[in-house]
Design a protein around this nucleic acid. Structure first.
Length: 382
DNA sequence: AAGAGGTTCAACCGCACAGAC
DNA sequence: CGTCTGTGCGGTTGAACCTCT
């Protein structure tokens, strides 16, 4: 049976909203509250589809929207979360108060993805690298459901916004000696997002995957941050993953129970933790999987970068550590450096004239060769 | 000044989930 | 348990806007 349309198409106005319509919608919602979107247009006297009303309200009319340009801190957080979550715009937006999923999505498509595009282009990363892995390695390709679980939904805050002033700078030209601003932790791998979320400001303790030159994928992280709000972290010492609640929801998505993986197999491949209830005990720290440094050769950089980006949920944070291990073991991608710089900040600095064409590693004293660059870019694009 | 081409972003569309019945 | 309704999500579109020549 065909699905009933969300509204009658006839007599429905489309296109840009007028100030008068905005006023009507705002007034109606202020008096009657949100919800009942289907009946709202009729009750409010709007010739609009209910979905259109909802979208207009959520993305534009709500009073708690944050206006203005995306700040560098927000941008950094978006990049970090996107690298972990993929195109989960609503989830990303939920961590950026006052920003809407549509705004984040547009910003990504118009700003950030272009940066990646230029990076890829300038490094001549073969398209095949981005192709899917062999079927045997591929994670379930199921498209993420159109919505997250109700429990994962949080009210978003919005404010009307004006058109952002256009940036005048040209798209970043990324030199072959592209910068790497990755921080390689002394002993550890750690990714941490929620600190930035909480502060929306630069942090000193972002660790983008680090492994010992000796090959320990998950050595002790003495810099481990005990912040309970950790969105996700991998504590090398305890080999424990910590997640924010909504991340747990994602990983334990009932509709896709195979989403929980471990790296505990000796062959180094991702494997399902068939019983996802393992992780249900705590949303703070869950023994999702052990990263055994002794029995677990990391997959090659190539094998990791062969994973499709969209497949990656749990595998992405694993990618990072092993990619970096490979980088450190074989190529010494970057020297260890206890600065607050990060891969992401390098990425975000792509427009900065002072950094274009300058490798941060070079700044550290050692330039990257072509293979190293390719590995790095593949990491970024993975 | 004007037109072409590029960019941005508001809005639309179809899909899928949750919950009510 | 199956169906229907309401709603949220992510992808896509195209008008408005900007920059360049």
């Amino acid at each position: 049976m065909g699905r009933a349309p969300c509204c009658e198409k006839v007599g429905i106005k489309r296109g840009r909203w007028t100030a008068e319509e905005d006023q009507i919608l705002s007034s109606y919602i202020q008096s009657n509250g949100e919800g009942s979107w289907r009946s709202l247009p009729k009750n409010a006297g709007l010739k609009r589809c209910g979905k259109s009303c909802r979208l207009r309200w959520v993305n534009y009319l709500r009073s708690d929207l944050r206006r203005g340009n995306i700040t560098p801190q927000e941008e950094e957080l978006v990049v970090k979360m996107h690298s972990t979550l993929g195109n989960r715009w609503s989830l990303i937006a939920s961590h950026l108060p006052g920003r809407t999923d549509n705004e984040i999505k547009n910003y990504w498509n118009s700003h950030l993805s272009r940066k990646l595009h230029y990076i890829r282009k300038s490094h001549d990363v073969p398209a095949v690298i981005m192709n899917a892995p062999p079927t045997s390695q591929r994670l379930p390709e199921k498209r993420r459901p159109g919505r997250t679980s109700r429990s994962a939904m949080k009210p978003k805050t919005h404010k009307p916004k004006t058109r952002k002033p256009k940036k005048t700078s040209a798209p970043p030209e990324v030199d072959a000696n592209v910068a790497v601003n990755a921080v390689v932790g002394e002993d550890a791998l750690m990714m941490e997002l929620s600190g930035a979320e909480a502060e929306l400001g630069p942090r000193d303790d972002y660790y983008y995957g680090a492994c010992h030159e000796g090959g320990d994928c998950c050595n002790t992280n003495n810099n481990n941050n005990n912040n309970n709000n950790n969105l996700m972290s991998i504590n090398g010492e305890d080999a424990v993953l910590s997640f924010d609640d909504d991340i747990i929801d994602l990983l334990l998505d009932e509709s896709d129970p195979g989403n929980v993986f471990s790296l505990s197999d000796g062959d180094g491949e991702l494997s399902h933790l068939g019983d996802s209830t393992i992780a249900r005990g705590s949303s703070e720290t869950s023994n999702l999987g052990y990263l055994d440094p002794l029995h677990e050769p990391c997959p090659s950089v190539e094998s990791f970068i062969n994973y499709e980006h969209q497949n990656a949920l749990t595998d992405e944070f694993i990618d990072w550590d092993c990619v970096w291990q490979e980088g450190n073991k074989s190529h010494k991608l970057c020297h260890e450096k206890d600065s607050s710089d990060s891969m992401v900040s390098w990425l975000l600095d792509g427009d900065d004239e002072t950094t274009i064409g300058k490798s941060n590693c070079e700044n550290f004293g050692e330039p990257l060769d072509h293979n190293e660059e390719n590995a790095l870019v593949a990491w970024l694009l993975s």
